[in-house]
Design a protein around this nucleic acid. Structure first.
Length: 306
RNA sequence: CGCGGGGUAGAGAAAUGGCAUCUCGCAAGGCUCAUAACCUUGAGAUUGUGGGUUCGAAUCCCACCCCCGCAA
């Protein structure tokens, strides 16, 4: 079987690796190199780097429809898409004999869209999973081919769940494709009534509201790091909050956001209980332990996050 | 030339022209049944680099290097 892999982020790499051992990867399609960071360094997508290292041809069209003729010429049996970042036009999806399959990091129809993993953690879900579905012209809409459920443990961070999902994808793709090619799977349409969508989180979404419950704040920190980041302000400067531990506190005292010290640890008051700030990063500074931040404070008595 | 913050002891911060200071850590001693607690003492800094102004520069001026937040 001949496959074209379409993807951009490193989410697809485990899947791509396993495909490369079992099938013929004719080409990899990924987004164009983008300027990144303050210096606007032109950076290739991770998928491109991997493909070049493994001697697989790379296509980087601005718009996918530009490559229609090239894809037709290659005559793939299947398009496999994982975290590409653009809608793929139907005229492309219909080219391969066995259709176009997308790997999505949630149990569809729940959490369609850009940030299923972060949203699952933010909402405090106990489970999530991987869905393989046959793509159509609508976003994350087509009939489901296979699903695999994963449990989300407490205190799971976005990055660790992302990694597990990405590895699970590889396993599920590897297990499912032979059955798909053999015609043993009948796609099941998604239940539109159950559908929900996720948005791309912005810097503003990462602002911490200290009047919320400590457990809610912790989930926000776990889900929205490293991107777009979670932050608060201290004397008109932003401070990223990178890592916290919830502290059981029977008698919350002081205002929400109030900074205090206990056993050399930095404590911030929330609504119902407190959080130990393990790691944070003031604007313009490198990440540092909460205790270090506390050491440098001029007025420890009145220190507060807003 | 996208906007902005920063570089001072091992760490985090003060000091805006005049003895480089504080908190933490570290070392030694003390207290204690004991301690991550407490007390005493100590070590540790060429203030990012190079030049300039000045009797005198962490501080003012010029150039350069490096780190970081936002935005993209």
């Amino acid at each position: 079987m001949k496959i074209i892999f379409i993807g951009t982020t490193k989410f697809g790499i485990p899947t791509l690796e396993i495909l490369n051992t079992k099938y013929q990867i004719l080409a990899v399609i990924t987004q164009p190199d983008q300027p990144v960071g303050r210096k606007k360094t032109i950076t290739p997508p991770p998928i491109k780097v991997w493909a070049q290292k493994n001697g697989i041809p790379v296509l980087q069209p601005e718009k996918l429809s530009d490559t229609r003729n090239q894809i037709t010429d290659i005559m793939p049996d299947l398009l496999l898409v994982a975290a590409y970042g653009q809608l793929i036009p139907k005229e492309i999806l219909d080219i391969p004999k066995y259709g176009s399959i997308n790997v999505h990091g949630s149990l569809l129809p729940k959490y369609r869209g850009a940030s299923p993993t972060q949203t699952a953690i933010l909402n405090g879900d106990k489970t999530t999973g991987i869905t393989l579905f046959l793509m159509d012209e609508k976003l994350d809409h087509g009939p489901v081919i296979a699903q695999q459920t994963l449990t989300i443990d407490d205190h799971t961070s976005y990055l660790s769940l992302y990694k597990r999902l990405s590895e699970t994808s590889a396993g599920l793709v590897s297990k499912t494709l032979p059955q798909w090619f053999a015609g043993q799977i009948k796609p099941i349409p998604q239940d539109e009534n159950q559908a929900s969508y996720t948005k791309i989180f912005s810097w503003q979404d990462g602002r911490i509201d200290w009047t919320k419950k400590a457990s809610e704040i912790e989930k926000k920190i776990l889900s929205l790091n490293p991107e777009p980041g979670t932050w608060t302000t201290y004397i008109n400067k932003s401070v990223k909050i990178l890592e916290v531990i919830e502290l059981r506190d029977q008698n919350p005292t002081g205002l929400a956001g109030k900074i205090s010290q206990r056993n050399k640890q930095m404590i911030v008051q929330c609504k119902t209980c407190s959080l130990i700030i393990v790691k944070l990063q003031p604007e313009g500074k490198k990440p540092m332990p909460g205790a270090d931040f506390l050491n440098g404070l001029k007025d420890k008595q009145n220190a507060i996050f807003i």
